[in-house]
Design a protein around this nucleic acid. Structure first.
Lengths: 339, 339
DNA sequence: TTGTATGCGTTATCAC
DNA sequence: GTGATAACGCATACAA
């Protein structure tokens, strides 16, 4: 583990450190002879450039931080995969931080209170983001891009999803298959977050468009978006005097729990109670029955996010932009009645 | 983004940079008065220590690399969560690299050919590790710990699972529920990897112990361990003249695909064809039907791994150790016949 | 094309 | 208990 430095290489190759550096970074044209000598010396000594030193000098680390609530939630792990791959294509590596649904932690990470000086940029994908991030002074912050599900504030670059429309389409699909008592699972207990609010808005407007009445009992909050939360909410729904004939879940993971709850209650998924989610995680494609959903293309989100973030790193003063990525309704068995 | 340095703080607080550093790192006893002044200056200037510089000086980065084949495979994302949390408890942050099943990439990352100088240590969780890593000269390598599923080579610290016994228990469970034609899904096409080889060994010995004959047709390879691979393998099994009445999958994800294939073939899971996996991913607990499995405790793996890795970082010369974490058979509905 | 010298921001060695 | 200064390894301005 003893450090071999440029100096050692330079000494062995009988050149200056400068030349070694030039060879390593293929800078200006170095004579083939010298290059060969340097390369040989590097090889012999097993020289490995010290990234930390290089980074101190250049001010860049080649490291991005991806901040998600929980990496083991499939939506985020699938997103992480796409982000890591996209970052790799731009020469960056990705560190993952989990906020664990802790707002204060989210804020801390976003303003880089901690040790964030290590990163060239931040990809921030909060499950629940408060309006207050809009109040952050983005000029003091590292190049940052918000992923998914938020309203454009004009302060941060931002890859958005049209939550309201996505929720509207999901609900309308349930209406189109003949459902009349459609529940919504995933509203937030406190109405402080944008994403669930938008999804609730889409749900409500779809009901209105279909001329269906709103029954407050059918709008069930979920503190988190885990399978367990979807399960518990659905158990409560099915215990109602007038249970729903369809459930729109604000995430696929909620929907997985919802399907299981319908099953455990002895009702038939799709025939008795249709279930639809949002996200299009792979798990839903193989579920029994397969889960209808509104697909969010994580590859597109990641690709566009990296393009944008790299641009901002190169030019921190450019104005913030918003990119809206499309979504797509995918009908599968969980909303399809038996023939 | 302009850097505020210790010097700026020192100037404002009218002390030396040394003192500022002492305050920041709670070193030697600084007088309360001075400490207060320094803290006030830090606050006023919004000073944030530059980690890169600190790291250059100390030789530590506080960063670990977690290397997995694919982060969006639930076993690995659940493991990553546990690792990130455990690392955080030790003051480390975690960067994630994906090898994408590329052996050469795995090797490169392991020997730190690239820019690995950035990390204080490596947690390496290959899906498929070749014997050849045993040939690596561990002395030239960063502190490294191998996670799960390998044979102890004496070169690297190593958190192991008793694959042979786990597979034996899974198979024996199927025997105990009255199955006689038990298939195995997940053997590797080329017998170069240890984990699947060990699992196959456990399967075979369980058959032998039960006095059941081996039918080569029932041992099906899977190139990867995705749902799709389990699905395809199972379709082939069910198309046999004498299809199996139970399927032991080498991972839960394979088993999820297997269950779906049984369903699609119009057979009943558990009653006609029992399915069991290994891993105990959360997805299996909510699946319809719930998936029997052999649980590997990822929290224990992560916790022990970090203890061990931190020890090695502090003392690189200590001998390599192997820790075997226990596993546990969990019976759920996918192997339970209807009453 | 290559060599010399300086500084990135921090911590550590030495004095005081 | 605190202040000045060197050094970590690299990249680059400047000089040759």
């Amino acid at each position: 583990m003893s450090q071999v430095t440029v100096k050692d290489v330079a000494r062995l190759a009988k050149v200056s450190p400068r030349t070694v550096s030039n060879v390593v970074n293929d800078y200006t044209h170095v004579s083939d002879d010298v290059r060969r000598r340097v390369l040989a010396a590097i090889d012999e000594l097993g020289y490995r450039p010290n990234l930390i030193a290089r980074n101190l000098r250049t001010g860049r680390t080649g490291l991005l931080a991806l901040i998600v609530p929980e990496i083991d939630v499939p939506y985020f792990s699938e997103l992480a995969r796409a982000v890591i791959d996209a970052a790799s294509a731009h020469g960056y590596r990705v560190m993952i931080d989990q906020t664990g649904h802790d707002h204060e932690r989210e804020r801390q990470l976003l303003i880089g209170s901690d040790r964030t000086m290590l990163f060239d940029g931040i990809l921030f994908s909060p499950l629940v983001t408060q309006d207050e991030i809009a109040d952050l002074d983005s000029s003091t912050v590292l190049p940052t891009i918000l992923l998914g599900e938020h309203t454009f504030t004009g302060r941060f670059d931002h890859i958005a999803i049209d939550n309201t429309r996505a929720a509207h389409e999901a609900t309308t699909h349930l209406v189109a298959t003949g459902r009349r008592r459609i529940a919504a699972v995933g509203a937030q207990p406190r109405e402080t977050y944008r994403t669930p609010r938008q999804r609730t808005a889409g749900y409500l407007s779809a009901l209105a468009d279909a001329g269906l009445p709103l029954d407050d009992d059918l709008v069930v909050p979920a503190a988190r978006y885990h399978r367990r939360d979807g399960y518990d909410a659905t158990r409560r729904l099915l215990a109602l005097d007038a249970p729903p004939d369809a459930i729109f879940c604000y995430s696929d993971l909620l929907a997985m729990g919802a399907m299981r709850a319908v099953q455990d209650a002895g009702r038939r998924i799709a025939d008795d109670v249709a279930v639809i989610g949002i996200d299009d995680i792979e798990e839903g494609r193989f579920a029994i029955p397969s889960l209808s959903t509104v697909a969010l293309d994580k590859d597109v989100i990641a690709t566009r996010a990296l393009e944008q973030l790299v641009r901002r790193i190169e030019d921190p003063s450019r104005p913030a932009t918003q990119i809206v990525v499309p979504h797509q309704l995918i009908e599968r068995d969980s909303t399809r009645r038996a023939a």
